[in-house]
Amino acid sequence: MDNSNLLQQLLLIGVGTTSLITEKVRGMTDQWVQEGRLNPDQAKAMIDEIVNHLKADASGIEGGLQRQFQQFLEELGVPQQTEMDELRGRIDRLERRLRDLENRLWQ
């Protein structure tokens, strides 16, 4: 399972949902403008406000998703990249020490 791909797919779903909502609101406000219930400036202000709220909500949701996803991976016991890097470094140092000891024995 590619964790970054899953997170990317979830984020794309969020972006798609935001775009769909924006288009629906634009359609609704366009209709209201045609009916004379709103003037074009009011419609634009309404759309801008809704889009700004959606963007703010999306960034909060993205952060929440990342935290939940990280917690899920921790519960599964999947190590973080920093932990893997640390372990690789330790393995490299141990291999070097082992080679040094082997070289000393053969001299």
Rank of each mutant, 00 (worst) to 15 (best):
E75N: 09
Q81N: 04
Q31A: 13
D30M: 07
Q42H: 03
D41K: 10
G36L: 01
N39F: 11
E83W: 09
P40D: 00
F69L: 11
G77F: 03
D41G: 10
Q31L: 14
E62R: 15
R88H: 08
K44R: 08
L73M: 01
L65R: 10
T29E: 10
F69G: 06
E62G: 15
H53K: 15
L38H: 02
W32M: 11
D41H: 06
Q70F: 02
Q81C: 01
N52Y: 03
N39H: 08
D57R: 07
G60M: 06
V33L: 12
E62F: 15
Q42R: 05
N52P: 01
G60F: 05
V78I: 05
N39Y: 02
H53C: 14
W32G: 05
Q71F: 10
L87G: 09
L76P: 02
Q71T: 12
E49P: 06
I61T: 12
A45N: 08
D41T: 11
V51H: 00
W32D: 06
A56Y: 08
L73T: 00
I50N: 13
I47K: 05
Q68F: 03
D85S: 13
N52Q: 07
G63C: 01
E35K: 15
E83S: 13
M46A: 01
L38K: 00
D48K: 10
K44F: 05
